[in-house]
Computed example of a mutant assay.
Amino acid sequence: MMKKKLLDGVVVLDLTRVLAGPYCGMLLADMGAVVYKIEVPGKGDDSRSFGPYVNGESAYYMNFNRGKIGCTLNLKKEEGKDIFKEMVKKADIVIENYRPGTMEKLGLGYDVLKEINPRLIYGAVSGFGHYGPYHNRAGYDIIGQAMGGLMSTTGWPGGEATRTGTPMGDVLGGLNLTIGILAALFHVRSTGIGEKVDVSLVDSVVSSMTNINLIYLAEGRIPERIGNRYESTYPYDSFKAKDNSVIIGAGNDKLYKNLCVLMGMPELADDPRFLTVKDRVQNHEAMKQIIETWTKQYTVEEITSMLNKEGIPGCPINSIDKVVIDPQIAGARNMFPQIEHPVAGLMRLTNNAIKFTESNADPVAPAPVLGQDNDLVFGKFLEKSNDEINALKEKSVI
């Protein structure tokens, strides 16, 4: 029997494009909300043109918009605005990721929409948020990573500041928007009062840098790029093995002592250079040389097997081809489920990381093709006649 979805009955109007906003809508849809993906007629979400492609369809778009009901609506036309206001009356949540002020220029800002539906939760994610001296600036993921400090601490000593391989600013922005919306949903159900959730990509990155920020706030020292090493504990790094590099995370005294025994050097635990976490961080270069003398004798597979047998965190540095066949990740945790798309056919997507015991948050439906559900949305949801829908199409409102 299919497990229930926790957000059954929650109605979301998704005006977002590309990644941060659609990621939030994706999570809400995976958890059971009815998410109406509202796109520009004839063009759609910008990410429909982003690769990679499957049978001409953007896999990028299909991943972040799975499970949504797709419709088109021109919000620059007065009739389109009126239709959107009709939809707001029946919705629980509106999400958008326009530059701040755009919705207000359209006459559809939070102050207007909350008068139509006082229980409405309005979620917005933007580069810098809806207030402050930079709020009108455009912002993408790379802006969030650069302005928020993440790039300055990513990479190797002496190297250039580096953007993370995945768009972490956007992902963090989408996650924070989802968290804020779920909190607001709880609040509105107990008070009847709606809320505006205002999330910034820059803030999201800054918030994620908690311990890194504290190096400067507590010590006055500007954090630098340190490769795979961790500022707060050691050994917690990558180490060269016979065939590649291996990750070892002996992050506390007990694990460190177990590692010393495993390496055949129990006396190392009493070495005054490495007695405490603070000592090991300070003397990380000497410690890395000692550990690599041991790791270079074995393959990555041999080392990880020994480490995990002793309960010491360790793993290979997987390339994506290894991740997608891993029995834990792809198998037991179902992180790459298959979905049948009407154009792309059977394809694998990246799942969300949320698992419930009594409920289901796995994706169950594909992303819509552009305008796929116009008749359903405007006919069933807004109860318009076929003649009215056809007139809207002729006037390019939908």
Rank of each mutant, 00 (worst) to 15 (best):
D203I: 06
Y53I: 03
V199A: 13
L185K: 10
F274A: 04
L346V: 14
A91D: 06
V343T: 05
L392I: 05
K278F: 02
E39H: 12
V54T: 03
A286S: 14
G42A: 08
T72Q: 08
P313D: 04
L28D: 03
V125T: 02
T16C: 10
F274N: 04
D92E: 06
I291N: 09
L28A: 05
M265N: 11
V300K: 07
V300A: 04
R99C: 01
V397L: 05
V199Y: 09
Y234C: 09
Y256W: 13
S200Y: 03
N97L: 09
L307A: 15
K114M: 09
K257Y: 14
K3D: 10
L382V: 02
E39D: 12
P316D: 11
K278D: 12
K90W: 05
I143K: 11
L175C: 10
N74F: 00
D45W: 02
F274Q: 02
S245K: 15
K43D: 02
N65V: 06
Y216R: 04
Y216F: 15
F186H: 12
K309Q: 12
S49Q: 14
A218L: 13
T304V: 15
P223I: 14
A124N: 07
K4W: 02
I325M: 08
V34N: 12
Y230K: 15
F239S: 09
L106A: 00
N351W: 03
A20Q: 05
R17W: 11
D45S: 08
D243W: 02
I93T: 03
Y98P: 05
N386I: 05
K393Q: 05
T102I: 04
Y140W: 10
G264Q: 04
R66T: 10
I312H: 06
M347C: 13
I179Y: 11
Y36M: 11
H284L: 06
A91Y: 02
M26T: 01
G180A: 12
I303M: 02
H341I: 00
V202K: 01
K254P: 00
E358V: 03
L255I: 02
M62V: 06
A286W: 02
K81R: 15
K322L: 09
K37W: 10
K395I: 00
A332V: 09
L28T: 04
G101N: 01
S152E: 12
R221M: 11
C24I: 00
V261T: 11
Y53W: 12
P100V: 02
G345D: 07
D170W: 02
T233Q: 11
D237H: 12
D30A: 07
K3P: 00
D270G: 02
K384N: 13
E285A: 15
M103H: 05
V34E: 15
Y122F: 15
A91T: 01
P22R: 00
I181M: 01
F381R: 06
G220F: 03
G149Q: 08
E340A: 13
V35R: 04
Q145T: 03
T295G: 00
T304K: 09
Y23W: 10
E104N: 06
G9Y: 06
I222T: 15
G220A: 04
S396R: 12
M2W: 08
Q372C: 08
E383P: 01
E383T: 08
A330T: 03
D362R: 01
P327R: 03
N374Q: 09
G155M: 02
V54G: 14
Q289L: 15
Q289T: 14
